[in-house]
Design a protein around this nucleic acid. Structure first.
Lengths: 199, 199
DNA sequence: AGTTTAGCTATACAAATGTATAGTAGTAAT
DNA sequence: ATTACTACTATACATTTGTATAGCTAAACT
């Protein structure tokens, strides 16, 4: 494949960023408008890019530009739960207000959900008030992992240890007390696999 | 809003699943083909759904069905810089190894980039070793903000204060010393606007 | 000097897609 | 029974979008 000209590179970059932003490729006229020229010029660029093998033009459909190297769904959509209800057998996420997009290469779990942290109980683990935690739903935790635990209908994020006859919930905050519960009073909702903070 | 009929629900479900799968909504003819009827029937359904307030029909563009609540692709791709060079007038990101996808509703800045944190100098601000910080490029910082600072070609994340004749870089770690530099030895690369951690 | 190529304007036309209207049949509500 | 609505067929037409062709200019190449 012959190398691209500067202009062709810029057009290709626009195709990629437009597609990633909108989820679908631009029309020839949108390309022209963006660069300030007519669609026929855009069309010529597209045909040059196709001739050089970096895109494919899918006739017989509008917005039919295909970019082989472009990984399509790099984004995973995660619901932000306002409440979690301990349904049976599965947990029910309630008051889903929003969805946030996370990177599949970082958080690949289908079915993951998110919670907004309220309070300072985990500051020593780098989880601050207002942070989003990404949670992989699972019914059990390893000793010492940070997880989402249900106490009745209350969901809380703590570091979890298992002792004989007790589940120990340890806040990561020197000023807060460790709590112990009988195993039948707590239920694991999932493991915290990530943190996202907006400053 | 009046409730939807069974058929209208099925059409709406198809709109949603098609859009999530493909990234863009179907055409009226694709809807008709899927259900086995003509496009004019699909069109009537769409108008009924619009009348009932669950979708909007964006005239003046093809595939113009908008489903509120279903946001399109909210993904912003952010490069992860391995090095930052203090070019003039702009900074040069070097050794870009990867790109991560972040949520536009959280981090909307075009031109943002990301750095991988090495070390524990910011643990008390909830920024741990291995975290990604999202950075909005800017040449100056407000007093007390967390920013990316260039000392020569070395990039470091610190909380920044300005005193007379000195720039103060304060690590968020009790065991590390505060550093002061003459203003002409440091250069601001950007403000830390977010943190992403994979556990 | 002549030729090719990139990069554009201008315009025409074709195909895809959206929109509207007329009509039929069935169902539900008043 | 009448009205309104759903759910479709059939068809016409408007708009958007893709494609092609004929230029024109500048730069690069032979």
């Amino acid at each position: 494949m012959r190398s691209l000209t500067e202009k062709q590179k810029r057009v290709l970059d626009f195709l990629i960023s437009f597609t990633e932003k909108n989820g679908f490729p631009p029309t020839v006229r949108e390309i022209g408008e963006h660069f300030g020229f007519l669609w026929s010029a855009a069309r010529t660029h597209l045909k040059a890019l196709e001739r050089k093998g970096v895109i494919r033009l899918n006739r017989a459909r509008s917005r039919g530009i295909e970019i082989p190297g472009l990984r399509p769904a790099q984004a995973l959509r995660v619901p932000v739960a306002g409440r979690i209800r301990a349904g049976n057998p599965v947990l029910a996420l309630e008051e889903i207000g929003d969805q946030i997009v996370v990177d599949r290469s970082l958080f690949s779990t289908e079915g993951a959900f998110s919670l907004r942290i309220v309070g300072d109980s985990m500051v020593d683990a780098g989880i601050l008030d207002g942070d989003y935690v990404i949670v992989r739903p699972q019914e059990s935790l390893e000793n010492g992992e940070i997880g989402v635990v249900l106490l009745g209908d209350e969901a809380t994020v703590k570091r979890v240890f298992f002792e004989e006859g007790a589940v120990v919930l340890r806040p990561e905050n020197r000023h807060m007390p460790i709590m112990k519960y009988p195993p039948d009073e707590v239920r694991m909702a999932g493991k915290v696999i990530g943190v996202i903070r907006k400053i």
